[in-house]
Nucleic acid binder design. Structure first.
Lengths: 297, 297
DNA sequence: TGAATAGTGTCTGTCAGACAGTATCAC
DNA sequence: GTGATACTGTCTGACAGACACTATTCA
């Protein structure tokens, strides 16, 4: 039996007569923080190259933020989810598909886009640099991989009436052949007796469009957090890799050195050993591993 | 010097002439999962009452989902962020302000609202049940606190070509004087050599509107995760509480019993002891604690 | 042989799980 | 005293940090 509403309509009748009101609606963009890891140049062939964490940025070819660098992204269409929009953008921008993709946060500060009311539903993608070939030909817009560094500059905790305020100031530095972009982002946590609220603010920004410095900072923090308790970092690796390479990836994400023995114990059940070894490395060969997909034990 | 775009406009000129296109845009709602903890009735005055985790739901007074129960929420307005919209809804619904509020996830499945294209930016709020007084008078819509239980029903892992699929089936049960709502939600993780994707699906649903079963399930999982490594649970407590009460809250969130000694060690530096004690409890009095807001040590 | 990385063994301190024991109130 | 909860002490095993040692390749 169908229920009737106050106007005596069934649900089907209601939906047939329903018209979307003409109140204002936001545009929703899916913006992507696409991470990969590359090898730095190394002059000494016997030394291992260092790893670098890189983020894909696109130089804006029109206003607003003309000439600034922005995250790849685009508006969500009515026939797709935000995730599908993100996957579509990723495919268009890098040609890759079927990679790790995770929703981060929806940014909705008023005025974050000077043109109009636009929210950004942000995603993080992790891809193996071997997989991707930037379409360098299409130079109406230029895209580039920027080396990312994200460091704590200052930490402060102040006691206030009935609680405290904690502020962390981070510097985000992005560098590539196209130059260096630097932003500082402050995270503020206000704790009172009943509540704890936290927010991000961009303190300074040189070269990044919109609030994208915030989004990248948020993505790096999510990545750092998850590296410690998931196998997420393995999505940045090629099919076969050495444990030292994996450790370098952890180190470049966390921006801190790890102890070899402890690291190997920690990742032991995230990987499966293979019978392959590195060759012609100028030193002892290393066993190659792959991401573990089977049951443990 | 101002940069000029392809049309020879400065950024200011561009923004002045900019008009929002008339392509379709979604409505964005802020939906809230509001948690609190209450005492169950206890006949024996010497025994401590059990704690119950509760979620606020509102019975729908119109189509669609007439008569079903939904999360409190509403559309985000052009002059506010999603977070401000969530805080506003929370204030309107419960009268509380200045509580713990955290963005969860933005749900955007197509067809999730049968009327129109609506995304839900969901939030979780934690409030102390002592603070809140439901406006029971306003009965155009009825609101009620439902006791939440969220349990794993089945766990399956299947090997597939080049990876595996892991499925977790959970049962969400919400009960109150208004009856019992039951939904089952399946979380599917598909891991292949290069990617890991996961998604939620509602398998069965009796009494909840929209995809709110998913949102509540997601909120409970977030709450369970954060309880272990933050002081988030303290936002569910009154100003003064005993460690046994705090342990009960942890237990009801995690749906598992904890060992007293280990629990006390774990929360020791999240709380500050006071000189107050419980009285007339029918047994040994207990020291009262409050949430630690000062520096540790 | 030397320069470099690969890989393992083991000590130690911390911490969670487990459980037992003592303390203290209201009636 | 009884029945209930409050609170503490301590054993044990797991595990991460730290460091040292051995192994192996290639020029």
């Amino acid at each position: 039996m169908d229920m009737l509403d106050r106007d005596g309509l069934t649900e089907r009748e209601f939906l047939e007569q329903y018209r979307v009101g003409d109140y204002e609606r936001p545009s929703v963009a899916a913006d992507m923080v696409i991470f990969t890891v590359t090898d730095a140049d190394e002059d000494n062939y016997r030394k291992l190259p260092e790893k670098e964490l890189r983020v894909l940025l696109i130089q804006r070819g029109g206003h607003p933020f003309l000439g600034k660098w922005a995250l790849p992204g685009g508006f969500v269409r009515p026939d797709e989810t935000t995730e599908q929009a993100a996957a579509r953008e990723l495919r268009e921008e890098t040609g890759v598909d079927n990679v790790y993709l995770e929703q981060l946060y929806t940014f909705s500060d008023i005025g974050r886009d000077p043109r109009a009311w636009v929210m950004s539903c942000s995603y993080m993608a992790l891809i193996d640099s071997g997989q991707v070939q930037l379409k360098a030909g299409d130079d109406a817009v230029s895209a580039a991989w920027f080396k990312a560094s994200y460091r704590l500059l200052r930490e402060r905790k102040e006691l206030i009436e009935g609680g405290y305020v904690k502020k962390l100031l981070h510097e985000l530095k992005l560098s590539s052949d196209h130059g260096e972009l630097v932003a500082t982002v402050e995270w503020t946590m206000t704790a009172t007796e009943t509540s704890t609220a936290s927010s991000y603010a961009i303190v300074s920004n040189d070269g990044l469009a919109f609030d994208h410095a915030k989004i990248i900072a948020y993505a790096i923090e999510r990545l750092r957090g998850k590296v410690n308790y998931t196998d997420i970092a393995l999505h940045l690796m090629p099919k076969l890799f050495t444990l030292t390479e994996l450790q370098q990836v952890y180190e470049v994400i966390l921006d801190k050195e790890l102890l070899k023995a402890a690291f190997r114990r920690k990742v032991a059940d995230l990987v499966t050993e293979t019978d392959h070894y590195t060759e012609n490395a100028g030193h002892r060969p290393s066993r190659l591993f792959r991401r573990r997909l089977e049951e443990i034990r």
